[in-house]
């Protein structure tokens, strides 16, 4: 689903002494089926931005287009609209509430008007997508699972809605590296299989660079930089100005380049770790002094 923001401004508590402009004239256009990374420091407006995607917040000024839907300051959005956009908040496990895992995950589809049987089928499918066994967990209380399992159950609850747009606000915060990778790989797989348009809010440049086709960099309520990861990471000074860092891979390439003559420089576009590793190995195999078996 293509998504367009035109000069979107959001002011919290307009007209009160606590008035705060959280988004300032934000504009961007995301094509259908894109994977978008949103990066920025705490308080830069990331969460405010994503809450506009399913109409939880409406713009104070400006216009948003989500597929065929228009959202303007005065728009009234039918419930049907919300089912287009699945929103996974930070620490989604705090939103678990049902007695059993199966009921919790099936809650959303039930509300869409599906029969119990159909909703449970969706719950089963969604749980298996996030790598959990339906049969083992369906009758367990979601509150007695481990942190990583709870996170995945909550994510399954949103996936079971089968919306065309998926918005994830720091879905991996607090998880260990293996857990982070598992969740992100599952999301990426669903993104491709179901041809979703996906927004991932993250602090991690590594996560953003691994999965996103397009990046939005936020600072002080504005989109200060947008483009492909390669375009964004080339703007190191601007990133640093906003207290953001390039991915560790890019930093490493720059440190190596500082000691290499011009013709031997490593391109900074190799920000994906696997690509950088392969490049380094290939280059070293060409260096005559190093004898490396093929």
């Amino acid at each position: 689903m293509p998504i367009i923001f035109e000069q979107v401004t959001h002011i919290y508590g307009a007209g009160t002494p606590f008035e705060k402009e959280a988004l300032s004239a934000v504009s961007f256009a995301i094509p259908d089926e894109a994977f978008v990374g949103i990066i920025g420091q705490t308080g830069s407006g990331k969460s405010t931005l994503v809450q506009h995607l399913n109409g939880l917040l409406k713009p104070t000024r400006g216009r948003i287009q989500v597929g065929d839907w228009q959202i303007e300051p005065s728009s009234r959005l039918p419930a049907e609209f919300r089912s287009n956009v699945g929103l996974v908040f930070q620490y989604p496990e705090h939103q678990l509430f049902e007695e059993t895992v199966a009921k919790d995950v099936a809650f959303g589809p039930r509300n869409l008007g599906l029969s119990e049987e159909a909703a449970l089928l969706r719950a089963k499918e969604a749980l298996e997508t996030v790598g959990l066994s339906y049969d083992e967990l369906k009758d367990r209380s979601p509150f007695h699972l481990s942190g990583g399992q709870m996170r995945r159950v909550a994510l399954a609850g949103v996936l079971a809605m089968q919306s065309k747009v998926l918005v994830l606000d720091e879905p991996t915060a607090g998880l260990d590296p293996a857990g982070r990778k598992e969740i992100l790989e599952a999301i990426y797989r669903i993104h491709r299989e179901r041809k979703l348009t996906t927004f991932l809010v993250t602090h991690s440049m590594e996560e953003a660079s691994r999965y996103a086709d397009f990046l939005l960099v936020m600072a002080e309520g504005k989109v200060v930089l947008q483009g492909t990861p390669a375009e964004v990471f080339a703007e190191e000074e601007l990133l640093r100005h906003h207290a953001l860092a390039v991915p560790q891979t890019v930093e490493l390439i720059q440190q190596i380049n500082a000691s290499l003559p011009g013709e031997q420089q490593i391109p900074v576009t190799l920000f994906r770790e696997e690509e950088l590793q392969d490049y380094l190995l290939h280059r070293l195999r060409q260096t005559r002094a190093v004898i490396i078996p093929e």
Binding site: Q248, Q255, S259, L284
Partner: peptide, 25 residues
Amino acid sequence: ANGVPIPPLLHQKELVEELCRLFLN
């Protein structure tokens, strides 16, 4: 693991030094 003669290391600084040494012969 792919046969490059590079010793075990810990810090990024060490990796940079080793790679530059190899690249520059």
